Simulated scan of single mutants.
Amino acid sequence: MTHTSQSTFAPIGRILADRVLPECQRAQKLPLRISCLGAVSYAGATDADYRDRSVLLGEAASPEGAIALAGLCVSRGDIGRGDDTGLCFEPRLIVIQDRALGLVLAGEIRAGIILWEQPVASDSEACRIVIDASRQRGLAFAASGRGDHASASALRFRAALLEARLVDPLWRETAAELLHLPQAA
């Protein structure tokens, strides 16, 4: 007679490796920094006068808090407004990073909402995105050299959207779970 053990308990080593250690690593990378990437110019500027800028929106203690703060800032529509009334800031992308500047989540701003980008699922997918984004940036550099600043800006933005999927491996599962949660109306 042989006795087979059918335990439903996971070994403690597996629990530590799969659940506890990643949570400790994420906790060390808090708070999360929320910023907005966009184009800045003065009223009446030409395409050549636009410059890419990043505006810090704040910090949050959790990914959920960072998403909520980003949504609030975008819905209010006051991102990048300062004392200079002639300065125009066109918000384009929200970026959430950890303390070590690892990407947690990013999304495009359209019509007053954030369209969060789905994080890459694997390192091989990340490599393909890096290659494609590099190609887009190369095309942007060439367009800028020709004086085609509008095309250069559009190509740089496309590259940034691709790179928005390059979530740090430590945050990929968390980001994917957050994007599958139902959103409050």
Results as ranks from 00 to 15, higher is better:
122 S>Y: 08
182 P>G: 04
40 V>P: 00
111 A>C: 03
112 G>A: 13
153 S>Y: 04
48 A>I: 04
94 I>G: 00
109 I>H: 02
165 R>M: 05
27 A>I: 08
37 L>M: 10
44 G>K: 06
18 D>Y: 09
176 A>K: 07
19 R>S: 14
15 I>F: 15
65 G>D: 02
162 L>A: 14
9 F>T: 15
27 A>V: 14
152 A>H: 11
94 I>N: 00
16 L>C: 04
62 S>W: 13
23 E>D: 11
94 I>C: 07
171 W>C: 01
114 I>K: 01
127 C>F: 10
88 C>Y: 04
69 L>H: 10
111 A>D: 02
33 R>F: 06
170 L>G: 13
112 G>D: 13
177 E>N: 12
140 A>V: 00
7 S>H: 12
166 L>S: 09
165 R>P: 01
79 I>S: 15
121 A>V: 05
7 S>T: 14
166 L>P: 04
14 R>W: 14
99 R>S: 06
16 L>Q: 06
161 L>M: 09
86 G>C: 07
101 L>K: 05
114 I>Y: 00
181 L>E: 15
34 I>F: 03
146 R>F: 11
66 A>K: 01
107 G>F: 00
130 V>R: 07
46 T>S: 12
137 R>A: 13
104 V>F: 01
77 G>L: 11
64 E>H: 10
29 K>S: 12
83 D>N: 09
10 A>F: 11
97 Q>F: 08
126 A>Y: 08
142 A>F: 10
107 G>C: 03
157 F>W: 06
20 V>P: 06
60 A>S: 14
68 A>V: 13
118 Q>P: 02
183 Q>V: 05
5 S>A: 15
47 D>W: 12
154 A>V: 13
78 D>Q: 15
77 G>Y: 11
66 A>I: 02
109 I>A: 08
34 I>S: 01
54 S>Q: 09
35 S>W: 03
8 T>F: 07
142 A>P: 03
140 A>I: 01
181 L>W: 15
125 E>K: 03
147 G>D: 12
164 A>F: 02
22 P>K: 03
119 P>L: 14
119 P>V: 05
161 L>P: 02
160 A>Q: 07
19 R>H: 15
156 R>I: 02
51 R>G: 02
29 K>W: 06
165 R>A: 05
25 Q>R: 06
139 L>Q: 11
25 Q>E: 12
182 P>C: 12
80 G>W: 04
155 L>I: 05
175 A>L: 06
